[in-house]
């Protein structure tokens, strides 16, 4: 019984970590848009390439934040949550 409970728990934690990384889609689309517009702007005005590039990199870094939140949740679920949840499970069983 305990093995079954542990298996379900660890499997669901892995699934949760995978679902958390769906957050990676958003920054991908957003950064793609930003870079596309930056390329258009450089094509229109090649003389302000350095300004556009630095602004674009700043914007990409900020757009990346939501994806990184998802990543941190996934890392917590994989490396930190199993220990905590195992402790809770053992307490509930009374071992």
């Amino acid at each position: 019984m305990l093995e079954l409970a542990m298996g379900i728990m660890l499997g669901l934690l892995g699934l949760g970590a995978g679902c958390a990384m769906i957050a990676g889609i958003g920054p991908g689309i957003g950064e793609g848009n930003a870079v596309a517009k930056a390329c258009e702007a450089i094509g229109r005005q090649p003389e302000c390439k350095s300004d556009v590039t630095s602004t674009m990199i700043m914007g990409c870094a900020i757009a990346e934040t939501t994806g990184l939140y998802g990543l941190i949740v996934a890392i917590l679920l994989i490396f930190v949550a199993p220990g905590t949840f195992t402790g809770i499970l053992m307490n509930a069983i009374g071992k």
């Binding site: 870094a61 990346e64 934040t65 990184l68 939140y69 990543l71 941190i72 890392i75």
Partner: peptide, 16 residues
């Protein structure tokens, strides 16, 4: 919070 997590997340994800 976002400044700290951005820097930490980028470096940690590279290491992982």
């Amino acid at each position: 919070v976002s400044m700290a997590f951005r820097h930490y997340g980028n470096i940690l994800s590279g290491a992982v």
